Simulated assay, not measured.
Amino acid sequence: MTDRRTFIRQSSLLTTAGLIASAVPFAGMAQNGNNLQEKPKEENSKWLDGSRLVISVSMQFESGGQPANAESPFPQNMKKGYKDLSATTWYEYGYKEGIPRMLDNWDKLGVKITSHMVGSAVLKNPALAKEIVDRGHEAAAHGMNWATQYTMSYNDEKKFIKEGVDAIKIITGFDAIGYNANWLRRGENTLKILQELGFLYHIDDLSRDEPFIQKVNGKDFVTVPYTLRCNDIQLIEGKNFSVDQFINQVKMEFDQLYEESEKRRRQMSISFHDRIGGTPQMVQAAMELFTYMKKHQGVNFKRKDEIARMALEDKTTIRD
């Protein structure tokens, strides 16, 4: 069966051949059109390191950095002037139980992930932030707090991003080169600022299932696409999926992308949040899913900084 892109190329060639053939009597020229019958090049389906399908896992480190009375599973009906103590304990679970449990699970699976860290959460739980890096995972920036950065001025946003990066560097020693805005809502200046601050990539984009490069401030800048389809905060909290529904959705996503990866470069993104993905049943779900995925030939789990660097090095990476 012909894949869609090959079909489009072949259809285009046939149309061109027909136009040329019909134009011959008028032009009075003899052309055999042999060049039109050449088989189109196969698209580069392999990653630079030979992977068939790359899986990118995010672990959001946000708890402890949330504002007062932040969104939670509890009814949003707190009276003004009172603190939502129940919601506070929900967030505390993220750093007391969730991340430690996920870290042990990643070790069991032999998987390295990218942790998007809110600066104020890092400062509140420095030992945990450092442990994430010490266990071989990437620390990526996620703002200094949960502020709405797309409304900030250029200078205020730059300061906001830098403060978050500095917090990660001071506590973990890691130089963050990847960025994720709160709910992916970056502003018009965000990419320019990230490029100025030495970042290599951002993830606030849902438009592709593979990384791509664009020019920012005249330099190459990578987008490593994120996900809402395989995201615990969207599915478990947002849509009230059961664990079985979550497993089924993520598995079906994997199966389709793995099939496509035979002919196209594919990346799958999966996202876990500290207070959601670190619950016992979700850790079991991740174990079941990743064990299934790792049985497939050519599947590799990679940190997002690794994906970004590989995309920059590969001359066949898509450019927008």
Rank of each mutant, 00 (worst) to 15 (best):
I20S: 04
A21C: 09
A21G: 10
S22I: 06
A23Q: 12
A23H: 05
A23Y: 06
V24H: 05
V24I: 12
P25S: 07
P25K: 07
F26Y: 14
A27Q: 12
A27K: 09
G28F: 08
A30D: 14
A30V: 11
Q31I: 14
N32Q: 10
N32W: 00
N32C: 05
N34T: 11
N34P: 00
Q37P: 00
E38W: 00
E38N: 10
E38V: 14
K39T: 14
P40F: 07
P40D: 13
K41P: 09
E42F: 01
E43Y: 02
E43T: 14
N44W: 01
K46L: 11
W47P: 12
L48D: 07
L48S: 14
D49V: 09
D49P: 11
S51Y: 02
S51E: 11
V54I: 15
V54W: 00
I55T: 12
Q60L: 08
Q60S: 13
Q60F: 04
Q60P: 02
F61T: 06
F61V: 09
F61H: 06
E62H: 13
E62T: 10
G64E: 07
G64D: 06
G64N: 03
G64F: 01
Q66S: 05
Q66T: 10
A68C: 05
A68M: 13
A70I: 01
E71Y: 06
S72K: 05
P75A: 12
Q76D: 15
Q76K: 14
Q76V: 01
K79F: 01
K79N: 09
G81W: 03
Y82T: 14
Y82D: 13
K83W: 04
D84W: 03
D84K: 08
S86T: 05
S86P: 02
A87C: 04
T88L: 13
T89V: 11
W90E: 11
W90N: 04
Y91E: 03
Y91V: 03
E92W: 03
E92N: 14
Y95L: 02
Y95G: 03
K96R: 15
K96Y: 02
E97Q: 14
E97W: 00
G98L: 02
G98C: 08
I99F: 02
I99L: 12
R101L: 14
R101C: 05
L103C: 04
L103F: 03
D104M: 03
D104V: 02
D104W: 00
W106N: 03
K108L: 13
K108A: 12
K108I: 08
K108E: 15
L109V: 07
L109S: 04
L109C: 06
V111P: 05
K112C: 09
I113F: 01
I113R: 00
I113G: 01
S115T: 10
S115Q: 01
H116P: 00
H116V: 02
M117R: 03
M117G: 07
V118D: 08
V118K: 07
S120Q: 12
A121P: 10
V122T: 10
L123Q: 15
K124D: 08
K124Y: 05
K124G: 08
P126C: 07
A127Q: 15
A127W: 01
L128D: 10
A129V: 07
E131M: 08
I132K: 02
I132C: 10
V133S: 08
D134Q: 14
D134N: 13
G136E: 09
G136W: 05
E138M: 02
A139L: 05
A140W: 00
A140C: 09
A141H: 07
A141T: 09
H142Y: 11
G143W: 01
G143H: 04
G143R: 02
N145P: 10
N145D: 15
